[in-house]
Design a protein around this nucleic acid. Structure first.
Lengths: 239, 239
DNA sequence: CACCGTTGCGTTCATATTGGTCATGGAAGG
DNA sequence: CCTTCCATGACCAATATGAACGCAACGGTG
């Protein structure tokens, strides 16, 4: 799968350079360009689209000298530019978040943010894209089911910085994640139990959480007598 | 908190009435009106906005006689109508989902859906709204933190599960459905067994369930020695 | 033309495993 | 010392499987 072309829109040169550098550090993303204000951004996107290499994702600062981020988003839609938008802002106003969602903002980053936060947001966006490109592994088909779409939305809206639900510990979750990352194939809850020395209940609880978050996919394993066993597979956002 | 004003856009009168009735059954939502096509929808929304009672949520069918749902969304944004959109469609095309997200679609419903699914989607949308209206109590300051925004986005990812008869698993049913969708002709239970790697009994049980639900039709296949074999054929889902 | 053995599939039932829930114990923090 | 939180073990519920039994059409055979 080819890289996702990213445009950085940011008026402060230092911040713009930082964001551009962040994009460069990520696998699967390519920096298409940077723009210091709204007019330049729109012109750049139009040019890229005309050249046949449209921008697919815009890191859009909401506070720009000439236009507000929401105006830019609106004009993009009016001009037929359908790039997805990740909003970046220092203005922590919730009503802006509401309007941003209505104009097709898929994620919202609040300055200042660390590279880890930035990386999480873009990784979840990439996972969303991948899941729409290739529905449920092994069950290729022309259409998608409701659960396929739900799954894709889930990975788009489920950043890893959410407070963990009751009953889950961060350290244990990390152990399970690390173990799953190393597995090439699918593993069952029992195998995780044996490998990590934890109880079956605990292993299953964390795997289930990861499945809901979209980090791992869950499929059933048939063929043997007894209730079908769930097997979990790490979903690679494509390396 | 006041109700969320909802506009239903759907060309089929029966489906429109059903969706309107669904909205009426939900706490916290008020039906603002219904529109059979894109032009009417846009006019209605403009009128409501001028009257000071703007539509806040649109249940938008993607397949309309005059305009495609994506066009309506684009024109809404161009006209300064910032209602949120829940897309409703029978077209299970993933690339449409992608474009829909870019134009500010917050949820995606695939027809046909049950009231439970519908209710879940609108409930998760309401939760999203509420969380943006009143940020986490105890957090000092007028603004929202990154985790507040993350939490609000996360509430838009609620998965929906519909109740199944005892003895049937959702994942298995989905496997069988996906397989049947791909078959152009009729297939027997044994063929499903071989293709999906499950037992004959299981394959037959799920096919029988789908036949009762009307999703597949069942006919007998004669000509070979032995008891006649049932064959199943995928039937187009109605609305 | 009627009858009967053959032949597969439909159907039922017990079984083997796993998923899910609940209450308990121990550890960490205040 | 008390409270909170999380992993655990045990129990019950769920569900695919395999085998055994029954049924209906086919194809000889009388």
């Amino acid at each position: 799968m080819s890289d996702i072309r990213v445009l950085v829109v940011e008026d402060e040169p230092i911040a713009a350079a930082a964001h551009a550098a962040y994009v460069g550090r990520l696998e699967g993303f390519t920096l298409a360009g940077t723009a210091p204000d709204g007019q330049s951004a729109l012109r750049l996107m139009t040019d890229f689209a005309a050249a046949g290499t449209p921008v697919e994702l815009v890191l859009l600062d909401m506070n720009l000298p000439d236009l507000h981020g929401l105006d830019i988003a609106r004009r993009m839609r009016a001009a037929g530019l359908f790039a997805d938008i990740i909003a970046i802002t220092a203005v922590r106003e919730l009503n802006i978040v509401r309007s941003a969602v209505a104009t097709g903002v898929v994620q919202y980053l609040i300055k200042p943010f660390t590279f880890a936060t930035f990386s999480d947001k873009l990784a979840s966006y990439r996972l969303f894209r991948d899941q729409l490109a290739s529905p449920a592994a092994g069950q290729a088909g022309p259409g998608a089911s409701q659960s396929d779409v739900d799954q894709a939305f889930a990975s788009l809206r489920a950043p890893s910085e959410l407070p963990l639900p009751k009953g889950l510990a961060a350290s244990t979750l990390e152990s399970v994640q690390d173990f799953m990352k190393l597995q090439s194939g699918a593993v069952s809850a029992s195998e995780v139990m044996d490998a990590l020395g934890m109880s079956r209940v605990t292993a299953r609880r964390y795997l289930e959480y990861l499945a809901d978050a979209g980090t791992v996919t869950r499929t059933a394993r048939y063929g043997a007598p007894g209730r079908p066993e769930n097997e979990y597979r790490w979903t690679r956002p494509a390396s």
